[in-house]
Design a protein around this nucleic acid. Structure first.
Length: 529
DNA sequence: GCTTAGGACC
């Protein structure tokens, strides 16, 4: 069962450096929708759910269907020969949800998609095509994506938006622009300013600001520029830290008679504040002065700063560790009748926590609740980090329970902070609970969770358990760091656990994982934190 | 689908 999964994952990436691909794919957690690890426990898959049973219940359960597909379907065989899905009733919801769950398994997703279409006579709607095109774009199978667009009844600009975003994300900006140009022959209407703005925005978000500027200048005559387009370009240049270009576009914008709005100013404000160094006090003051000047300019134009403007400044205070200023600013915005959002509160809370004023932060958390603002995982993580620093297990656990009660989504981070904290405190029963929660909620574990758990277990000399998790992580497609391998390997040898050691070796061989060979000559030190 | 909060080790 396990080896079958690995085989399928292997087939998914045909490049020779598949491990690297796998490794990278699991590290792209900050990309908006990069591949996620499988959401389920393969090891514990119950026998009774195998597709040899009448598959009636699958018709409603995308979770189950996707598990079965991942586990039993060989993408190189027809769906019938690996599965008996004949009795299945496909509905749009089932198809969408299943495709979403197969996002990291593009071949299986495509197999299912094609099977539904060709064998089950199911007519995919636009949403299903869009998901599929997105999945294909992620693995750069643009030829197949184009094929699907070709067979769609009426692809919309949304479909093209997805394709264009994937092309740009893959660095194929020329192709993206060509797709944009070809779009009107598919969607049955001419491209509009809005579509053009989306193209510019996507180019800028992925850092191709120069390309965006070029095509903007080239097609100004065709698409009437609006303040949104200018804002997008200003955002791009700010992102690249090229304030002079950003200002040039602001000037141009005004000179063609377009009024900058509050978003334009917030983009500029963020440009000033975003990466400015705050280290010596003068730099912090300089940044704040620049921000305040911009506030003044806004007011001169009759534009009132909004929550976002204040949140940007509050983030600067937080980075500069200025709890008093942070609280002042929060109060002054409230007096102006601007209601803080989660982002606003989170910045202030982060500031207070990082400055040790956790009681004040706790008061703000209460205030948030009173104002009907739901804290996010990011908000909670600020507290957890501080509780970890204080080794305050009780408070951390209490807050975690509160999170569960309010069914606040836990982030990967929440778990990683807490797993580390409770391992260090040797409260392994809680670590276990967290680990189970993490799997159940479907957010993890990720490469970091495995790495830190294994390192903690090694430190406690629980070699066997560490080894189990090491094997498990490989089976899930995570490439361990070299240091993790070395720590475990050395520990096993030093404690004469040759059988476990051999098991580890066999696993690595099976998966053809090698860590660079110079380790043989190294003198190992056991892991120290 | 124009803007804001976001890890931790070394």
């Amino acid at each position: 069962m396990l080896s079958r999964l690995s085989t399928q994952q292997r087939l998914l990436f045909s490049s020779p450096s598949r491990l690297k691909t796998r490794f990278l794919s699991h590290n792209s957690s900050n990309s908006d929708d990069g591949p996620k690890s499988p959401h389920f426990e393969i090891l514990g898959f119950p026998e009774t759910l195998k597709p040899s049973l009448p598959p009636l219940h699958i018709s409603k359960d995308a979770d189950l269907l996707s598990r079965i597909l991942i586990e039993h379907h060989n993408p190189y065989h027809s769906m019938e020969s690996s599965l008996q899905l004949n009795g299945i009733r496909l509905s749009p919801t089932l198809v969408h949800q299943t495709l979403v769950r197969l996002k990291s398994f593009s071949k299986i997703a495509l197999g299912f998609f094609a099977w539904a279409k060709d064998q089950a006579n199911y007519r995919h709607d636009e949403a299903a095509y869009n998901i599929m095109i997105d999945v294909l774009g992620k693995v750069r199978q643009f030829d197949v994506a184009w094929q699907l667009i070709g067979e769609m009844v009426d692809p919309s600009s949304r479909t093209f938006g997805i394709l264009i975003r994937r092309l740009i994300a893959a660095g194929l900006t020329r192709q993206a622009i060509r797709a944009f140009d070809d779009m009107e022959s598919f969607i049955g209407r001419g491209t509009e300013s809005e579509d053009f703005c989306y193209l510019l925005d996507t180019l800028c978000k992925y850092g191709y600001v120069k390309v965006a500027t070029e095509i903007f200048n080239g097609r100004k005559a065709r698409f009437r520029p609006d303040s949104k387009m200018y804002t997008v370009l200003i955002y791009g240049w700010c992102k690249l830290n090229r304030a002079s270009f950003a200002e040039k576009f602001l000037e141009e914008m005004v000179s063609v008679g377009l009024e900058p709005n509050v978003v334009t100013y917030n983009v500029l404000l963020n440009g000033i504040c975003r990466r400015s160094s705050l280290h010596p006090e003068e730099r912090f003051e300089r940044t704040i002065r620049a921000a305040e000047n911009l506030f003044g300019e806004m007011q001169k134009r009759g534009i009132e700063p909004d929550v976002t403007s204040y949140s940007i400044v509050l983030h600067v205070y937080s980075r500069a560790h200025k709890p008093a200023l942070s609280l002042d600013k929060l109060n002054s915005m409230k007096e102006k009748g601007i209601f803080p959002t989660v982002a606003t509160y989170t910045s202030v809370i982060k500031c207070l926590c990082s400055c040790g004023r956790i009681e004040d932060a706790e008061l703000l958390l209460v205030e948030m609740g009173r104002n009907g603002i739901t804290p996010s995982a990011v908000t909670y993580n600020c507290f957890f980090k501080e509780y970890r620093g204080r080794k305050d297990a009780d408070k951390a656990l209490k807050l975690y329970r509160k999170m569960e009660e309010s069914s606040c989504m836990r982030s990967m981070h929440t778990y990683n902070i807490l797993v580390r904290m409770f391992s260090k405190l040797n409260r392994m029963e809680i670590v276990r609970e967290l680990w189970d929660d993490m799997k159940k909620s479907g957010v993890g574990p990720d490469l970091d969770s495995y790495t830190l758990l294994i390192h903690e277990l090694c430190e406690k000399q629980k070699w066997k358990e560490a080894c189990q998790f090491f094997v498990e992580m490989i089976e899930k497609g995570f490439l361990p760091q070299k240091i993790t391998f070395e720590t475990l390997y050395t520990g096993l040898i030093q404690s004469d656990m040759l059988r476990t050691w051999r098991r580890l070796q066999k696993k690595l061989e099976e998966e053809s994982i090698t860590f660079s060979s110079e380790f043989k000559d190294l003198h190992f030190k056991p892991y120290r934190r």
